[in-house]
C-alpha cells in the first residue's frame, strides 16, 4: 500500500510541476515524471508478493511468477513516452528560437 501511495505522490509531483511552472522545459519534465509514475504503477499492478521473474528455467517451474503482461506494457509505454518527449522538446527548441525565451508568460499569445 505504501508503494502505491508513493507512486501517487510522484504523479502529484509531476502534475504540480506542469501546473505551476512557467518554464517550458520544466513543464516537459513534469510530464515525464507523471509518465514514470504511471510506469511504476503498471509494474506494481503486475507484482505478486514474493514472485520471481517469469522465466521458466530448471527448478523454477513451481515458483510464483510475477505477471509479465504489465511489464510488456511498460516497455511499450516507455517507447511511446520517448516519442512524446522528443516531440515536446523539438517544439520547445523551436519556440526558444522564435521567442528567445522559455517563459510561457512571454510566449502566450493565443486565447484558447
Amino acid at each position: 500500500m505504501t508503494l502505491f501511495v508513493l507512486c501517487f505522490l510522484l504523479f502529484l509531483v509531476g502534475l504540480y510541476g506542469v501546473i505551476t511552472r512557467r518554464n517550458i522545459i520544466k513543464i516537459v519534465l513534469g510530464i515525464c515524471i507523471m509518465e514514470y509514475s504511471m510506469n511504476l504503477f503498471l509494474v506494481l499492478v503486475g507484482y505478486v508478493h514474493d514472485g520471481v521473474a517469469p522465466i521458466i528455467t530448471k527448478g523454477s517451474e513451481r515458483a510464483t511468477f510475477v505477471d509479465p503482461l504489465p511489464q510488456a506494457m511498460v516497455i511499450t509505454v516507455i517507447v511511446i513516452g520517448l516519442a512524446t518527449t522528443a516531440m515536446l522538446l523539438a517544439i520547445a527548441i523551436r519556440l526558444y528560437r522564435k521567442h528567445g525565451t522559455f517563459d510561457i508568460r512571454e510566449i502566450n499569445t493565443l486565447k484558447g
Partner: peptide, 19 residues
C-alpha cells in the same frame, strides 16, 4: 509562433489525457 504554441498546448493537454 502561433502554430508552435498551439502544438505545445495541445501536447501538454494530450499528454495529460493519455496518462
Amino acid at each position: 509562433k502561433q502554430e508552435l504554441e498551439a502544438s505545445f498546448k495541445y501536447q501538454v493537454m494530450g499528454g495529460l489525457a493519455s496518462l
